[in-house]
Design a binder for these strands. Sequence first.
DNA 1: CCAAAAGTGTTGTGACTACACCCATGT
DNA 2: ACATGGGTGTAGTCACAACACTTTTGG
Lengths: 226, 226
Amino acid sequence: MKSLEKYDVARKHPMPFVRLELVLLSVTDGGLQVLLSHREEDPFKGKWGLPGGVLRIDLDASLEEGAQRVSMERLNRPLPNLNQVAAVGGANRDPRAPWAMSVVYRSLVQTDIETSPGKRVQALAWRNVIDVIRTDDLGFDHANLIAKAVDATRQEVRELRFQAGWLPKEFTLSELQALSEAVLATPLDKVTFRRRMEVAGIAAPLEGKTKMIGAHRPAQLYSLTT
Amino acid sequence: MKSLEKYDVARKHPMPFVRLELVLLSVTDGGLQVLLSHREEDPFKGKWGLPGGVLRIDLDASLEEGAQRVSMERLNRPLPNLNQVAAVGGANRDPRAPWAMSVVYRSLVQTDIETSPGKRVQALAWRNVIDVIRTDDLGFDHANLIAKAVDATRQEVRELRFQAGWLPKEFTLSELQALSEAVLATPLDKVTFRRRMEVAGIAAPLEGKTKMIGAHRPAQLYSLTT
DNA sequence: CCAAAAGTGTTGTGACTACACCCATGT
DNA sequence: ACATGGGTGTAGTCACAACACTTTTGG
């Protein structure tokens, strides 16, 4: 390779084993959930862990694209939003290599979009994040990574920085508030939430469009103004 | 190596060229400054860039320790505080390797601690961050990385999350406010700043200890309550 | 006494909370 | 009519900004 003829520094030192891990979060009736993958191989065989895969410099043009590829391979779906959580790395972090690092991404998705086990994945399951973090029975440092991803997501929700893909294109303010409450695991005041949304100007009502839910007054539909 | 006998996945794929970059920030009369290193070699020879170095899995037990080692090698000093900014990576990011990633750390330090050019560093210079970001004449994506580091630091200052090493062990509230104003590049109200400090309870007055500055009333000295 | 920085008190404003209340729909 | 969730109005609280003011030192 031409670049390697010119510079030899890249060959002088052994490089670490680099993986990409995904923290998929979703809101259900049971609150905020995280998607876990059952480990069929050592290390931590039999335990649950984050879906992830090896960075492939022959396939991935960037870390983000690598994360999308891993999502396609493991979960058979792309991710509508992707945010980096952190990079962690050290010796003896992963028995498969003397020195391993992981770049971790998070994505809050809608549960109704199906996620099916892909290559080398036997089973996937949504589990309540609070349970998962409290009873840390996961492999590696994954519980810690999930906690970081949840914190970052909560910070965004607190600041009303809602991302595309978190909800359907058209949604009601009540749905958005319910999502926020589930993510934050705390109730929010309706008046305050609506006024904050209004001044923030991040969602616009869709004139004439309403959503009927039950035997109730129909709700105004909104969409994100990007 | 035993782990490689057991698992071959770590050998199956080529791994990226991994570097560590440092964003050292400091406050002087001229405002918030960033430490830049003059590049004596290609790529970007003659330009300025962030000090950094190659991750050495034979020397570094973790990414953080690697960042400290790079700091010792390039700047002849350890860093009193260290926060990860992000990991960036992709093909064609660095001509020295077909696929390069960097893990970026930031540290806000006191300028009076000396920083001397180390191994393969000819010159170091503090430059005003606003200038550096506006007139992006740096190599790689370093201006963007600096902007991210500054944003994160500002967020911490806004939330009064002051770290050890940002100031001397004993400091006055005026000094802390001046630091905050320099980082945020905006004036702060004295009363508000002091009251927020009081309710936050992150600094305690050192009984009987004051600091004389000029022909003025002496100022109460504080220290961080960790 | 004066200049200058340290430190305090006071008042207005704006964002949030709590709670009461009206609106629109299916049964 | 009424139950239920959508949507609004209002008053109290709290954090902060603005600004005036007092305190303490060296000269």
